[in-house]
Design a protein around this nucleic acid. Structure first.
Lengths: 233, 233
DNA sequence: AATCCCAATTGGTCGGACCAATTGGGCGGC
DNA sequence: GCCGCCCAATTGGTCCGACCAATTGGGATT
């Protein structure tokens, strides 16, 4: 009998969701302090350890900031200094921050990959491209395809720092902001742009790869910006 | 005199980088189990709590999988299944790779910081600069000063992805290669370049900040290249 | 030989303790 | 009365010890 057991939910995951819900509902507003650990233990009925593991995650997601001796604070969203912004904007802000980082990174990585790629890397890129042509219907598959392509691309740079960074950012995207790929529905554009990047790399054209990659991420960025603006209250 | 330390690195962050280094160096291979918590506590000399917070992060980054009752395992990356994963030692090559990543990142971060910095960020930058003027004698202090400056600079971008990236890459430097800073002895150049970046940010001059940052990192890159070449075989 | 059972191992959770940084209020000096 | 210093309370960071649940492997039983 195959073991179908689903992974049990850890307590810290529940806490993460509860805090995220508190932020989304407006109970915790941007810049405001989160109740201290010792009080939350009581309110949520969990131990301090679980609480702290949850906050480690929330920090990494860019939702919470911890300051020893002071407290934890809901991070301020983008730009909007003036008060009363939609609480929902916080997670949206995190998504846009992710994309802004990629606007810088992706073209540079593509250029470096074009310079450094070996034949084995090209083969693997080709394989990823053809493998994902048919499997981009569901948002989850699009996310996976995008991740696969960019990871293989990054590994072609043979720079472990880039690889670490890409793994990290994409995992952040896929772990918690899977909403992104339901907003990005144009699979043909995805495939075509990836193809374009691949061809530039095939020709060892660093500048071309950077340009294609830049167009790719700029389109995604604009699309997300518009989609998130539309969703507003 | 007050301790000028601007920021202390959390223990779990160091653990995260040590584990990442173990994976990158090939000491821990994909699919293989990570040593159990109770043994790692001893090996790394940290408490189980810090260890567990580190693994929460490594899980979120997709590097580790935890299975209760069994153990923790290095997750298989999607790009590199074909075996032959050339695990390189984290040595001189890694230093240069780190610097190549910074050649791309630092100017972009400086430019973004120039656009986004608020008065509080400028104050903190000034404080870091003046605090480190006198404390760059020992290599370890130079490393700390460089880290502090770049971290505060990055936090001025108010982009948590950049902050995460910088924390990780710099911690990687300091954990495994404080040797870098014994090769970089020109403390006046360091200070002057940091000062220059600061002034560009003060004027909200994105392009200027990027140029200064680029000069800074290029000098470091060249210096390291020469130093490592001299040390060579 | 096959099966069952139990003890050891491992991650998950809890509670308590202490440290370091920050903060705010009260006390003392002016 | 005002200013400044100091201390106690608060808060996150770290460590330690304990117990639970799931898994595993080997030995005892059948």
């Amino acid at each position: 009998m195959v073991d179908k057991r689903v992974r049990q939910t850890r307590i810290y995951e529940k806490v993460v969701d509860e805090i995220k819900a508190l932020i989304a509902s407006g109970s915790l507003r941007q810049g405001e302090p989160v109740p201290p650990e010792r009080q939350l233990m009581e309110d949520l009925g969990v131990s301090r350890s679980s609480l702290r593991e949850a906050f480690r995650v929330l920090e990494l997601l860019g939702l919470i900031e911890s300051i020893p001796g002071k407290g934890r604070f809901v991070r301020r969203g983008r730009g909007e200094e003036g008060g009363a912004s939609d609480p929902r904007k916080l997670e949206d802000g995190a998504i846009l921050e992710l994309m802004e980082a990629r606007r810088v990174l992706d073209p540079a990585i593509a250029a470096e990959a074009a310079r450094k790629a070996r034949s084995g890397d090209l083969t693997r890129l080709r394989r990823v491209l053809s493998a994902t042509e048919g499997s981009m219907a569901v948002p989850k598959d699009r996310a996976q395809a995008d991740f696969d392509f960019h990871l293989v691309l990054t590994e072609a740079t043979q720079n472990f720092v880039f690889v670490n960074i890409v793994k990290m950012t994409f995992n952040l995207i896929m772990a918690t902001h899977d909403r992104i790929y339901s907003l990005l529905s144009d699979k043909d554009a995805f495939l075509h742009e990836h193809q374009e990047i691949y061809e530039a790399i095939l020709n060892h054209d660093g500048e071309g790869a950077a340009r294609s990659s830049s167009r790719h991420i700029e389109r995604i960025y604009r699309t997300l910006q518009e989609a998130l603006a539309l969703e507003g209250p």
